[in-house]
Amino acid sequence: MCLGIPMRLVKINGDEGMAESGGLKRAANLSLLKDARVGDYILIHAGFAIEKLKTEEARKTLKALREIGA
């Protein structure tokens, strides 16, 4: 029901952010996010950042998958 795509936050101006990914830039509304920082990967849904992505958790997930059955 809800498409969300990860993009990197490259600029912050109050609640207005600019997010980038693969050469694509799009305004991102940051009003639903606490403590957004430039460089964060954020999840964008319908123009709004709804969550930050946690690198450490992503790594853990991938590591667990690689180790399955090994």
Partner: peptide, 18 residues
């Protein structure tokens, strides 16, 4: 929870407040 890189146990409080 499989989607641990995104999910917080209590979700997003700012969004719920809105």
């Amino acid at each position: 929870v499989q989607y641990t890189r995104v999910i917080e146990k209590n979700g997003n409080p700012l969004a719920r407040k809105a």
